[in-house]
Design a protein around this nucleic acid. Structure first.
Ligand SMILES: [Mn+2]
Ligand SMILES: [Mn+2]
Ligand SMILES: [Mn+2]
Ligand SMILES: [Mn+2]
Lengths: 221, 221
DNA sequence: AATAAAGTTTAGGTAAATCTAAATAAAAGG
DNA sequence: CCTTTTATTTAGATTTACCTAAACTTTATT
């Protein structure tokens, strides 16, 4: 496995994420948006990653990870999520505080350390936001039921994962008492703005915007 | 406190180390040696660090940390040594394996994480090589008895610290059964090459070179 | 199909952190 | 004190990862 710079690792991870979200081929603009950089910079890096055979890329045709690129991505994601577990389980951080720190810790590359860390944490299968943790061989422990709340049909739902990217969102969920495993009753769906009225047992009902419901993954119970 | 790049942090740490080792003003060459870089690069960085008021520096006059520079150094060293403790105590690495990893982990800057880590480890006072860990306020927990074995007078000695930089040295010490707290009897000092014959209780005597004895810190018992 | 709009790439530049080679200053030795 | 050696700095390049502005492709819209 090649030695990647931090910038290269961040590109690989973002490409993986966008592919996973369903993009057939990842566009220059989408990647620039994800990485908060400019399209021209993405084109530059695409050439370099193609050279290193981590992506398939033809001018104007978008980007896809090669098998090797995918392996690299899973290794980075494994480190990221294990560190998030460490910060929450051992250092008692709350779930909205750990993503930024894990963004840095993930770039310390040592298989031995990663595997020891995993063992130390009891080989966790999911991170604090409900996302699965790839194993040492780079196999992702099942992609989790991936239904966002705004698309769920059932009335009674359980929270299985939440987006980890927005601190503000996670703080909002804290305030509402929503965490992994929380059971939700959908009281009403309002068509005009796609907001949803929810209830958690023994608590007053409240309403969340579409923006929020898109970032809560649920399964029926 | 300013935001430093990883390169800047490494310079600050090395300047601190050389000052501690007794250099009145740290020379360009010494710093280049320590950082495994070229003198010309050191001059470039010196200008930048002076601009940021982390060092005092005049052309041809060498380098000294300012109060602020010293504070930055202690903060980096604190992170480095806490991570070494974590790797040894929690992830069961041995002492020769952790320095390289800590060199990377130390650059993740978060006071909150650092303090939580310290607490999680039971606020250790020394790292796995016997070096003191600065506290959250940047006070170094006493500089330790700093007598290298080749200068010690007494016959009966206890190991209080070892240099952490050479994996090979630490592996050699492992093989000889020398660790922190080990009690040594000096059998003989050979003038012609400054080697020392040592004995640990219940074990056959053995000889170590001056190179080795320079890197073992001891106190009389 | 022609044109407009949107997306992407290229050209040319900047900043950080390096380097080599040449110039200059300081120190050491006779 | 003059000269040689050593240490340090400057000048000019290089590499990585960005950027803006302009050019070019693709796609969508009349
Ligand atoms: Mn995360
Ligand atoms: Mn990252
Ligand atoms: Mn160390
Ligand atoms: Mn370092």
């Amino acid at each position: 496995m090649m030695n990647l710079s931090i910038a290269e690792e961040n590109y690989i991870k973002s490409i993986y994420k966008l592919e996973e979200e369903g993009q057939e081929a990842v566009s220059t603009n989408a990647l620039a948006g994800e990485l908060d950089t400019k399209p021209a910079s993405v084109t530059d890096m695409a050439k370099k990653l193609k050279e290193k055979k981590l992506i398939e890329y033809e001018k104007y045709q978008g980007i896809n990870l090669t098998a090797e690129g995918k392996k690299a991505a899973l290794s980075i994601i494994r480190r990221h999520r294990l560190w998030e577990c460490f910060l929450v389980d051992k250092l008692l951080f709350s779930w909205e505080e750990v993503h930024e720190l894990a963004e840095e810790l993930e770039h310390v590359r040592s298989e031995k350390m990663t595997n020891r860390l995993s063992e130390f944490l009891g080989n966790p299968q999911i991170d604090p936001h409900g996302d699965p943790i790839p194993d040492a061989q780079g196999k992702m422990g099942k992609p989790r039921t991936h239904t966002p709340l705004h698309k769920a049909k059932a009335k009674r739902l359980e929270v299985v994962a939440v987006s980890d990217k927005s601190t503000a969102l996670l703080e909002f969920l804290n305030a509402k008492g929503i965490r992994l495993g929380t059971q939700l009753d959908v009281i009403e769906r309002y068509e005009f703005d796609n907001s949803i009225e929810l209830k958690i047992r023994n608590q007053p009902a409240f309403t969340i915007s579409e923006q929020v419901s898109k970032n809560i993954m649920v399964k029926p119970i």
